[in-house]
Nucleic acid binder design. Structure first.
Lengths: 243, 243
DNA sequence: CGCCCTAGGTAACAGCGCGTAACAAACCGC
DNA sequence: GCGGTTTGTTACGCGCTGTTACCTAGGGCG
């Protein structure tokens, strides 16, 4: 799995756009759908790794959609709903949802829950999975995507530029997965207009170099962002070998 | 997986008993633990399919336990806590929890959430195999099968190139099994696009030679990576594996 | 026991992917 | 508009990687 593709299903266009944008800003590839039909269309059109599913849609209940998908698909589903009663929650879980988030929600928390579900899904499927500790500790660094302020656990602060911060977010959303330069460029492109440049440019290389210079302990021999020669880059977790 | 075994961790004995009973009544096999030490003991004693982990324990924070487990285990963890703030939740997810349930909770709902996590785990588990901490020790050498990192006697860390590291991982994943050059080439191919070349090339030989030069005490008479004449190479194992 | 053929070790080399310094363009706050 | 910062481009050099070629070691066989 390269960059996780999230399908945001909500009939409220404004809400939908907000969620799509937010997911993109956190390193996911996100697309929206406003109705059950659009969901089907999107699933047919391309890979979808997780669905954020609003319960109250115009044409069809989210719960029904969930049940219908579960009958044939395994795609992880997180239900999102203004209905927060236990009864509704149970119904959601029984329909096959992997998680149930009540509106209004903290967007940061939603991202964490998406990650948790993807983590669990991916963990078993990937042989290459390793420790996550440093990633999450590291995730704690990224606090403000806007200002690009990054705080290290040790207390010192590093100022990342917006592009550097975005790159880091993309890596953090995809730990242990080798990303090609094209994938990185695409994931960093928030606008989603598909203006995937960097076909032959070295922009990504330089950007990675600059990020390394700021966050790697020894930029000369990077331990966090590793080079996958001939492929791209990977966010690795420094594994301490016990001796 | 037969009946899922759930480990309930809570230092409040009454609460713990209640949860254990409740889980049992809902078809799970449940056992309790009241401290971090007991958790370790239970994990060592037998299979555990999911952990319900209270955050506030007497001797150790549940978050710390979660992080510690995540460093080496994949067992699903649902954190349970009276602390329901977004900050605490995020901390839980970042520590590697699969779900975070606030106290007081609806016990029926908890069961559904347990089922949801197990469902997701099982679904992806077809490929899963039990991983062990593939740390090999031999004559002072420490070879980590996951990071591909190598530490020489005396703590000095040998820098392997990415290809060399990958080769070492392949060997460590198949100890004492003679591997043909084709098998090695195929296993090393990360992309998996089946571009398994090296039909007649000597690339593997040279690569093995280079790896030997770095990790064998006497590269002239290798003891770790032995040559299987007419076949390929074998990783000999006069080493101890940590489970 | 010695010969010969083959498989494997490895030094040397060439291609090239990647790191990065330096420069230029774009951006931004004032 | 202006200085400072950020971002992409270019160019150069290094180190990784596969290929080739030559040599040694092993082992089968007379």
């Amino acid at each position: 799995m390269a960059i996780p593709r999230v399908l945001v299903v909500d009939d409220d266009a404004e809400m939908r756009t907000m969620m799509v944008t937010w997911m993109q800003r956190n390193g996911f590839a996100a697309v929206g759908a406003g109705s059950g039909a659009e969901v089907t269309a999107q699933l047919g059109a391309g890979r979808v790794d997780l669905i954020l599913l609003d319960v109250m849609l115009g044409d069809e209940s989210g719960v029904d959609i969930c049940r219908r998908l579960r009958a044939e698909q395994e795609v992880p589903i997180i239900m999102v709903s203004a209905l927060s009663g236990d009864h509704q929650r149970m119904e959601g879980y029984r329909a096959g949802a992997d998680d149930y988030v009540a509106k209004p929600f903290n967007p940061d928390l939603l991202v964490e829950r998406v990650r948790a579900v993807l983590r669990r899904t991916r963990r078993a499927a990937s042989l290459a999975h390793r420790r996550q500790r440093a990633v999450w500790r590291f995730a704690g660094w990224v606090l403000d995507g806007r200002s690009g302020e990054v705080r290290a656990p040790g207390g010192y602060q590093v100022a990342l530029s917006s592009r550097e911060g975005r790159l880091l977010q993309v890596f953090l959303a995809n730990p242990e997965i080798p990303l090609t330069r094209d994938e990185i460029a695409e994931a960093m492109d928030v606008t989603g207009d598909g203006a995937a440049e960097a076909a032959d440019g070295r922009a990504i290389d330089v950007l990675v170099g600059r990020l390394r210079a700021k966050i790697e302990e020894d930029p000369k021999s990077p331990t966090l962002i590793r080079t996958a020669r001939g492929v791209g880059y990977v966010l690795a977790v420094p594994v301490q070998v016990e001796g």
